[in-house]
Computed example of a mutant assay.
Amino acid sequence: MDNEAVREAILAALAMRGPGKSICPSEPARALAADWRPLMPQVRDAAARLADEGRLVVTQKGAPVDARAARGPIRLRPPD
């Protein structure tokens, strides 16, 4: 899957959810492919890069985290 398509899917899912709302990384993955599970590492990597750019915040249990170091479920939300 093209990295730009993954980035755009993440940003589109955030825009559809609305300001202040978070998404699960599986949402853009599901929008991109019926067999979405193999896309999850790529989605998490794209989320980490978008967070580095200040375009989103990665959280775990409501607190900001580094997507590259986080283990387990994460959420993606727009920056404050």
Rank of each mutant, 00 (worst) to 15 (best):
N3A: 15
E4G: 07
A5S: 14
V6E: 10
V6K: 08
V6L: 09
V6S: 09
E8M: 10
A9Y: 02
A9F: 03
I10N: 00
L11Q: 07
A12G: 06
A12E: 13
A13H: 04
A13Q: 04
A13F: 02
P19W: 14
K21P: 00
I23W: 00
C24K: 14
C24E: 13
C24H: 14
P25C: 01
S26I: 07
E27H: 06
A29M: 03
A31F: 00
L32R: 04
L32N: 07
A34P: 07
D35A: 15
R37H: 12
P38T: 03
P38K: 07
M40R: 09
Q42V: 10
V43M: 09
R44V: 14
R44C: 11
R44A: 08
R44Y: 10
R44M: 11
D45R: 15
D45I: 12
A46I: 10
A46M: 14
A47R: 03
A48Y: 06
A48N: 04
R49T: 13
L50W: 04
L50F: 06
L50E: 03
A51L: 02
A51M: 07
D52L: 10
E53Y: 10
E53L: 13
G54Y: 06
R55K: 15
R55M: 12
R55T: 08
R55E: 11
L56R: 03
L56I: 03
V57M: 03
T59C: 13
Q60N: 09
K61P: 02
K61M: 12
G62T: 06
G62R: 06
G62W: 03
A63I: 10
A63K: 14
V65S: 09
D66Q: 03
A67E: 04
A67P: 07
A67V: 06
R68P: 04
A70Q: 08
G72R: 09
G72Y: 11
G72Q: 07
I74M: 10
R77K: 14
R77I: 00
P78W: 15
P79Y: 01
D80A: 14
D80Y: 09
